[in-house]
């Protein structure tokens, strides 16, 4: 592959221009997103850590195509960093933990998890549900318990105390079905991120 210096420099410059545009675009949107980075989106079950996930995901949209509940949504494609990566909003549609998305993922950005309930309980960690006792109906004189019965792991991840007051345990996987089901507005039970095993309490949000 013979090339003279002039052609080398020409090709270098010509290929640097689109690369520079794309990199600066990504950087710009990354900086724009930085303030929002404190609350990253909720990724489908089995997702790697955020930075690894963004690097590995090939944006093929296969997870969204297999999702039977239409839970998984995609970011707007104007933003080159997040563009095309899957996420879900627990309030709109919680994850039903069917484990189809991570078993179909070709890139390994979502790690495959078997459909066994125990495996799901031990491996899935999307976040954790947190109850706001100030507004929760059950803590304020109205027996409700909707979140307790919406949970796929009732009595394991969440259990109803006296008057169905919800108590979330450490086993909560953060699927968001309780948040979707909550009848109080704004939601008295919410899914929050667990950052390095350290819980983010509702006060910090």
């Amino acid at each position: 592959m013979y090339m003279d210096t002039r052609e080398f420099i020409k090709s270098l410059v010509a290929s640097l221009i689109p690369s520079a545009i794309l990199v600066s675009g990504s950087w710009f949107s990354f900086m724009k997103l930085l303030p929002k980075r404190k609350a990253p989106p909720f990724r489908p079950p089995g997702a790697l850590a955020e930075s690894e996930f963004l690097a590995k995901c090939i944006r093929c949209r296969r997870c969204g195509q297999v999702c039977p509940n239409e839970t998984i949504k995609y970011f707007d494609t104007l933003d080159p960093v997040m563009a095309g990566t899957p996420y879900f909003v627990p309030r709109e549609k919680g994850c039903i933990l069917c484990m189809k998305c991570n078993n179909t993922c070709p890139s390994g950005a979502l790690e495959p998890i078997s459909e066994n309930p125990d495996a799901i309980l031990s491996k899935v960690k999307i976040g954790k549900a947190v109850v706001d006792k100030n507004i929760c109906n059950s803590f304020n004189g109205f027996v409700c318990g909707v979140c307790v019965f919406a949970c796929p792991y009732t009595n394991i991840a969440i259990w109803g105390d006296t008057w169905e007051q919800p108590v979330v345990t450490d086993k909560c996987v953060g699927c968001g079905l309780c948040e979707q089901a909550c009848i109080h507005y704004p939601q008295a039970i919410r899914v929050v991120h667990t950052v390095e095993e350290k819980e983010v309490t509702i006060e910090k949000i």
Binding site: M3, E7, F8, K10, S11, L12, A14, S15, L16, P18, S19, L22, V23
Partner: peptide, 12 residues
């Protein structure tokens, strides 16, 4: 220039 695709691939 002729080699732009290869350079773009490597640089990006």
């Amino acid at each position: 220039p002729k080699r732009t695709p290869l350079f773009y691939l490597i640089i990006s």
